[in-house]
Design a protein around this nucleic acid. Structure first.
Length: 501
RNA sequence: GGCGACGUAGCUCAGCAGGUGAGAGCGCUCGACUCAUAAUCGAGAGGUCGACAGUUCGAUUCUGUCCGUCGCUACCA
């Protein structure tokens, strides 16, 4: 059975979950659900990143331990994902023992292989910040936050020999264009490498909230080098070599463009340094902007998923973010735009189609859904849309996949309008039209289920089918003619009530 | 400064390995229908495909320059 391992970044617990975090997680969830429909053995991972100076400081400020601080925020992410119907198979936290073991194992390997060495880091240090600054960050030679003079400090660090991997990284980019997508993001990664790579400091002695360096316990690993390894941890690195060997070659990482450098350059190099041959596929998307501006704490324009779920429902929320933004470029979110799309795609097209079909079946077919005809003109529409949708999911383009799926819905509304079954006498001709419409609903429900699992379960049930679309297997289930007929159609309230602007 | 991306209907975008009259969705106008969530269907208006120059029989599609937006990256007296 094919395997599919997809990850989101692990989110740093210094920030509460917002629609940007949720966007990546949602893409991962939809992809995982699509692959489950394909029958792939699927593993979907998300989690939280919990080490580092910022967490330690926040904890100090709140008068609690770093772990307590991490517990609190990590829990908020788990709650958010539960709210959004996220079907992750695991939730990893970097504070877990399994992860410490993996980090120490992987970096020990890199050390043993000669890619980690002891050196001195010299930097401009602000005592109040307990942190280093680049010269360019300083304001008049002083700390930008405290306005106090910085001092030059020298710290013993371990360095990762990143500079040794430039050629191999470039060769990888070139040999396998699919390694990083979209193309533009791969070019960006290549650009970073071509600029010249310097070795990077990967340990700290000034803080203790992290994973200890195994060969020198006075150091902890710098948070980034600890965090990336989570992807390996979760499939058994360091603890279950057999499991790791099975899953690792099928890895796809989803990430936003701000962490491209770490994922597309540092991380593959670290894997090479540790002697791990298979490199992950990387899928990089842009930001969700709000009113054209980046979301940030200081602008106070962060939007929590729960605010929108309240107004649009989980499935309305999920559909919107999967459909409205193409994967790759930045996208602009607006509440008004969300209403427009919800009303158009969900209320007017899908919801209304279900409603009119169930009403006509009640009036003209005694409430019993007829079987479709095999030579329906809609069969070709469905087949073409399925091919497009499948290709789009394979290319990490949920918006394109859903657009293709919705073409079926539009064609079917058109089909009903043309045939006017509500004007027909009950009988074979009317049954044929309504059977076709029900068959469309069956297929659409399967194809849309990665985006809207809850709503699709409801539609599935209303058209008389048992079980759930998630139990279906593609591509067989998308073949025309699967609706058996003779099922009781349930009329219900509108599934997606229109929203007022 | 270097590298790169982008600039196509009111909005969001697709498309073009160069070739008859440029596309989708939404919005708008008109009409049809009334099974349906004031939903649906049809017709239509609306674009010098950023500007200029070049290559070509022919460019929105290729090349160059410029303007504008943005990203990555470097540096500065």
């Amino acid at each position: 059975m094919p395997r599919y391992y997809v990850t989101t970044p692990i989110y740093y617990v210094n920030d509460a979950p917002h629609i940007g975090h949720a966007y990546t997680t949602l893409i991962g969830d939809a992809l995982a659900r699509w692959h489950r429909l394909l029958g792939d053995d699927t593993f979907f991972l998300t989690g939280t990143d919990e080490h580092g100076l910022k967490i330690q400081r926040t904890a100090d400020a709140n008068g609690i331990t770093p772990l307590e601080q991490a517990d609190r925020t990590s829990e908020r992410f788990r709650e958010a994902w539960k709210l959004l119907d996220i079907s992750n198979d695991d939730f990893i936290r970097t504070t877990e023992p399994r992860h410490h073991l993996a980090v120490q194992t992987l970096l020990q390997k890199a050390y043993d292989n000669g890619y980690v060495y002891r050196g001195t880091y010299e930097g401009l240090y602000c005592v109040a910040c307990e942190g280093y600054y680049n010269e360019s960050d300083l304001v008049d030679g002083r700390c930008p936050i405290h306005k106090t003079p910085v001092e030059t400090l020298v710290e013993e660090n371990y360095f990762f020999r990143l500079s040794a991997f430039a050629d191999r990284l470039l060769a990888w980019f070139e040999a396998d264009p699919d390694c990083i997508q979209p193309d533009g993001k791969r070019n960006e990664a290549a650009g970073i490498v071509r600029q010249g790579l310097e070795d990077v400091s990967i340990s700290r002695t000034s803080i203790s909230w992290g994973v200890p360096v195994p060969w020198d316990p006075g150091h902890v690993f710098y948070v980034w080098y600890d965090a990336l390894i989570n992807y390996a941890t979760a499939v058994g690195y360091g603890s279950d070599p057999e499991r790791f060997a099975e899953w690792w070659p099928e890895t796809t990482h989803l990430l936003a463009k701000d962490i491209l450098r770490f994922h597309c350059v540092y991380w593959p190099a670290m894997l090479m340094a540790a002697g791990i041959e298979n490199l992950p596929k990387l899928r990089v998307h842009g930001f969700l902007l709000v009113g054209g501006e980046k979301m940030s704490k200081t602008r106070l324009n962060q939007i929590a998923p729960s605010d929108l779920v309240e107004d649009f429902g989980v499935d309305g929320y999920r559909y919107h973010f999967l459909r409205d933004n193409s994967f790759g470029p930045d996208g602009d979110f607006s509440y008004e735009g969300m209403i427009v799309r919800y009303n158009s795609d969900l209320a007017n097209n899908l919801g209304n189609l279900l409603q009119r079909v169930s009403t006509v079946v009640a009036k003209k077919c005694a409430g019993i859904g007829p079987a479709p005809r095999m030579d329906s003109p809609l069969a070709g529409v469905v087949a073409a849309a399925y091919n497009d949708a499948a290709a789009a999911w394979a290319n990490t383009q949920p918006s394109v996949a859903l657009e293709a799926t919705w073409r079926i819905i539009r064609e079917t509304n058109d089909y009903l309008q043309t045939n006017e079954p509500w004007k027909m006498e009950p009988g074979p001709e009317c049954d044929a039209v309504m059977g076709d419409a029900l068959e469309v609903l069956r297929v659409v429900t399967i194809l849309a289920s990665p985006a809207m699992p809850g709503a699709c379960d409801v539609i599935w049930r209303r058209i008389g089918l048992s079980g759930s679309p998630r139990d279906e297997r593609l591509p067989a289930a998308a073949a025309w003619g699967g609706y058996p007929g003779g099922l009781v159609i349930e009329a219900g309230d509108p599934l997606f009530p229109r929203r007022k602007a």
